[in-house]
Each structure stands twice: as C-alpha cells, then as structure tokens.
Design a protein around this nucleic acid. Sequence first.
DNA 1: CGCTGGGTTGAAAGCGCATTCATCGTACGT
DNA 2: ACGTACGATGAATGCGCTTTCAACCCAGCG
Lengths: 392, 392
Amino acid sequence: MNAPTVYDVAGQAGVSIATVSRVYRAPDSVRAGTREKVLEAARELGYVPSGNARGLASRNTRVLGLCFPDYADPDAEDPDSDYGDDAELMLYSDEIIRGMERAARRHGYALLIAASLAEGPKSLVADVAGRVDGFAVLARTVPTEELEVISRRLPVVMLAGPREDAPLDHLDHVEVANFDGELALTRHLIADHGLTRLAFAGTAEDSPDGEARFRGFQAAHLEAGLPVPERPGVRTGLTQGEGEEAVAQLLDRGGELPEAVAFANDQMAVGALSELRRRGVRVPEDLAVVGFDGIPLGRLVAPALTTVRQPMRRIGEEAVELLVARLEDRTREPVSQVLPVSVVRRSSCGCPPRDGAAAVSGPFGGSLGPGGGPAGPAGPGDTVGGPSVTQS
Amino acid sequence: MNAPTVYDVAGQAGVSIATVSRVYRAPDSVRAGTREKVLEAARELGYVPSGNARGLASRNTRVLGLCFPDYADPDAEDPDSDYGDDAELMLYSDEIIRGMERAARRHGYALLIAASLAEGPKSLVADVAGRVDGFAVLARTVPTEELEVISRRLPVVMLAGPREDAPLDHLDHVEVANFDGELALTRHLIADHGLTRLAFAGTAEDSPDGEARFRGFQAAHLEAGLPVPERPGVRTGLTQGEGEEAVAQLLDRGGELPEAVAFANDQMAVGALSELRRRGVRVPEDLAVVGFDGIPLGRLVAPALTTVRQPMRRIGEEAVELLVARLEDRTREPVSQVLPVSVVRRSSCGCPPRDGAAAVSGPFGGSLGPGGGPAGPAGPGDTVGGPSVTQS
DNA sequence: CGCTGGGTTGAAAGCGCATTCATCGTACGT
DNA sequence: ACGTACGATGAATGCGCTTTCAACCCAGCG
C-alpha cells in the first residue's frame, strides 16, 4: 500500500531506475520505445515522483516561498465575515501572493506561503527556508539580522521595506516609491487645488512606508515654499477605525481646520470619510481628503478617494524575478527595486468626478536597466518614482 | 560555500548527527548541555534543516497543497489594474487560500499553492501531489478520474464541486448549500415581496454550482405553487460584463418584463445593476435583483445587493480539516461537507435599506451529525443548508 | 572485417536527515 | 561494592531520486 517508487516502476517496465528517472528529467535521452514502456508502467502503478527525494538529490526544490505577518488571529471566530480583519493588509497580501504565484509559475516554480504567527516567527522562517529555493518576506515580519543569516545560503528578498543602512543589509528589496508618490499627490493638492494648510495623518513611527510618505509630504511643502511640517498632524493606527479616530482628534483639537488631510493609507482615509460625513464636514468642499495605496474600495466610496496607487501585484512579480535572478547568479550585487506608483485623481481632493470607474493608470514605461536614474518627469498617467533600481 | 548540514553541525558541536537531529525533532530527549552545544554550533554555522531530507527520511512533508484554475493569463499586461481579471474567481481563490493557510498553520502545515495553466494541468497536479501530504483542488480544475488515481496515495479534497455519482467518486468534498441558498432567496422574493414573475440568469450549463442554484430557484416555484421554469431565462458568462449582457438580452427580448431577476452570482448581478441604471430601470421598484456569493462589492453598490453569502474562507478551512482527518485515518469513508449559506437581505430585492453595513449573518448553529437532513426552517440569520455531512 | 564513436542503458554513489539498535554511563537498589 | 535499569548518545541503515561513469550496442569507416 506504500506509494510506488522508481524501483517499482523500473521493475514493472523492466528497466533500471536510472532510466525511469531519465524519462521524467530528460525524456529525449531515452529511446521512444523505452520511454513508452516506462510511462505505461508508471500509469499502471499510479506513480507520482517524490518531490522530496528529487529535491534532495538535485539540491533544489523548485519552490519559492513567501512569509508574511499573520493578518489575524488564526483562531478567530466568525469565519463568515467579509472583512473582519485588517482588510488592507489582507488585500495587500493577497495581491502579493497572486503576483508571486503568477511569476513563479512562469519560471517553473511553485509557491509556498506561510503567515508567521506572532509567537514563533523564528521557527517559521527557518521552516520555510528549509523547503524552498528562495523566498520573499514582507517587511517587519522577521528581524533583518535573521534574514541576513539565511540569505547567505538562500536568496531572500524583502518586500515593501527599504534597504537598511546602519548595518547595510545585503538583501534584495522590492519597494514602491512612497516618497515620490506622496510628493506628487501633495503637489497636486498644493499646485492644482491651491491648498496650503495641509495635515498628514500618519501611523506608528516605526512604519518605514508611512515615514517615507510623510517625507514626501514634507518635500512638497518645501518645494512650494510653504512652511514644512515637522511631524504628522496626528498619528494613529492604520485601520479604518483609526482613520475615524484621526479625524476626531484633528477636529476636536480646536484651532484652525486644515484644508486637506493626507492619510498614510486608504484604509484610514475611508474611515475618515465616513466620520467626516457623520460630523457634517463636506468633502472636498470643507476638507479635501487623500489616501495612499489604491485599494478598490477607494473607488466605491463617496466621494471617490483620490490616492496613490501602488502596484501590489507587481511587487510580488518583481520579488520572483529578483529571486530567480539571484538563483542564477548568487554573486550579483544586492538590488533595491523601486516600483513606480501613480496618482489617481478622483473627487475627494476636489477634482471633478469622472464618469467611468477607470482612473489614471499609466503603463510602466521606461527601461528597467540597473542603476536607472532617479524618477524622471512624471510619465503618462501621473506615474512617478520608477522604475528604478538602485544598486549598492 | 555549500549549505551546512547535520554533519557540519555535529562536527562543530562534537556530537553525532543523530544527536543533532534529535535536538530538532525531540529536544527533550537530549541533555540540556548537549542541546545548547548543538544549537550554538547551528547558530554559528547558519544551519537550516533541509525540508527535503527531512521529508524523505520521515515520509511526510508537513505541507498541504491547493490547486486552482488559473484566473488569468499569466502574461497579461496591466498588472496595475485592480480588478482586470475575473474578480469573482480571484476573490474566491483568495478567500480559500486564506482559509486554508490559516487552518493549515493551526495544524502545523504550510501551504503550497499552484494555479493550473490551461495547457498542462496534468503535470501540475502531479507536481503538487509529489510535494505535499495532501491537497485540495477547486472543482473542474482537473479531471476527476485523475484525482481518483492520486487519491489512492494521498488525501485529496475537491472544493466547491458535488460528489460525482455516475462513477461514484471516492474523494472528500467541500461544497456550499447552493440549492438551499437559492431556494431560500427565491422564497424570500416570492413570499415576502409577493413577486411571482421571476427570471433566473444562469451561466454555462456545465457549472454544477450554477445548476444547483437554478434547481433551488425552481424548487421555490414548486413550493409556492407557481409554474416551474424549465430553463434559466438567460445564460451568459459569469462576469460583470456578462451580467450587463444578460440584462440586455432580457430587456430587449420584448414581452413582459419579469418582476425580479435572480443572477447566478453577484458579479453578474452587479454588472446588471449598472446596466439597469443606464437603461433607467429602477431597482427594486421596477425590477428586483438578487445575486449569489456575498462578495464585498455587493454591499457597496447602489442599491445594495441582496444575495446569498457563501462562507468562502470556511471552505478552505474545512478542506484542511478533512485533509488532516484523512491523514490520521486513511480508511475513513469519503465525506461530503456541505457548508451553510445565509441569505443577506439588502435593498436590491425591495427590503428596506439598513443603516449599518452589517447584514444578516448568523453563526453556523446546529449539530454536525452525519446525514444531517434537509434544511429545516431558516435558522437565525437566515442560515440555510447546513452544516451537514453526507457520507457515502 | 576490425575499429571508432555516438546513442542508450545500467550500476553505484550519494543527497541530508530520521530512526532503530547497540552501547555507554550513571543513579539506584540491596 | 556489585548488579540493574534507565537515560543519553553513537553507528548504521534507508528514504526515493539524480547523476556520474562505465558498459554496451550498433552504425559507419578504413
């Protein structure tokens, strides 16, 4: 009742196990007649090659991995709810998974996914590392030093996290142009809508994404000759509810109301929108609102959310490309892929509502050569910040 | 530069490889001092156990798999688009992946996912089968006979597909109460809204889900003493665009307009909604519309879509449970898990709009005894059709 | 007709780990 | 102090496959 092995097939077909192996690994090196015999025997026996044995013998698994933080309590109740968990992070992960799966398949790899529990991420990543040829990790899932160690043996790419400088890390990175995106978005608010009193609603300080966005926000002020805000006007969590809270804090604080609020992400902005409506603050007349991410929901709320769209799926695809490239040349220099984002103008910033659902969304033009310079002028569709690759 | 192995660690720590192995597999069987020495050596060397070798030696991979049909051309352009592909199927897959990942992790398994290309699904499934301890397959991804063969060596569960009778298949199944759900939904239209001229907009005939839903639609007519429609009023594809087309066909056909249209899925219904608005047909006043699936989008469109919510994530979770159960007892009888669905009344059927976003969504009450009878009266939250397990 | 070379196939040696069995040491009993 | 028993460790084997390396077969050639 044990699963049939090469030995069984070889016996059945009257050949050696080497031949059986060759039938699968290099069919052309076996005479057609012999091959048929083997295949026939395999079919009869219901033979399925063992990935483990193959991997062990050939020292590769043909599997790529993805580790991401657990988006929710695995023992959570209410499996029926649509978006009970952190919808943004979930959507984010989904898109990355999809992108990776697709790209991996294109290269002949399968995808192993594993969400790390809050408790033992250590074992998780080691576990994954032992089963794959290379893997991607969402930033802040696992300490960078740990990844460094593993990356000595195995390609590792970090997703959505900037390269660390202090001790310069040697990982490949895929990130999006947070700074450029927020800069372009804020510039739009200032230059196109003539707004000058802007507030930034940020998240925790240890979010590199959020901080980069805030710096873009600052840079736009700098560029326009406006006073540069030193800190976000408010800091909360990154969920919808906390977007509402941010609004509450901003409005209840007293003093002059800003003309616009830039939220660190769409999720917060959407929450803010409903809180503002509740309070009778009109958007964008009384207060313009913009987000960041480009989640589908942003298109459906009223008013439709102006935001910066990140190519989430593309992040996954690029990750695989980087992994595959490093698999082919283990000695190449660490690369930091910065993917372009595009400003999506909808009505929450004061732009006229568009008819169709489709918003500005330029193709990623431009070459992808290494060392591609800094972002040129915004291309078609307000795409900014890429594609560029900075090498160490 | 080769990755360190147990031998390296053993050498470094001055113990045998057996001890190294034990440190990882059964830490308690090694004296604390020895264990520390080994762990230290491992740390120093950057040792990561090989999943392949472990799997080969222990004859299990601790990995579960999922095969699903490719939702899009892997070479598709425009990776930036939010919902360029078949959004419903994608969402469906995402939710199942999420459910499986979560449940798998709970049981100490990782998840290997693989979308099958249109071309060589054969090799795909064999490939996956060789790497995992068991796997789930979305219905109609792979011919059932092929799965049957594989399931002799490996637990296989089919998702969202009914058990086949003709040659009774021996796989485990997880499906949702399509019939019961559509029955309850249609009953609501008839009994609560007093509608009698209903049309069903179906998809291709080889969709078991769609057909089961249509039978539920028929059954509601039967129950109410209305003439039973023999075929769906219209058949199209299952995307949003095709929902629009269905509307076009229905309206342009001439003759008396139905009072309500039940769409085979939400995606179509949403498309229909916008086509109807375009044509100036008021929903629900002129025509009630209902869908099936419970996609998040349905809550955001205007009017909000009345539908039947499937517990998509739960499908993934149940799949894992079934897999794990069979892994523990290879001889158990094939099981067909039918998950309950719940009618979500929103305004597109004529129900008064609700304030909050939350819709009816009862817990899965009821016992889980095998052979659970047909759906009783709709329980709390209009949950119908389960949980029940039918055994062979 | 013997020799050479390309095309096929087989024998055998691992790949890195789990696991069984034997061995060794030690705490305990009497 | 000696035998016993148990806990800790090591030696050796095998998991199923890939991959040389060598053996073999036969066509083509001199």
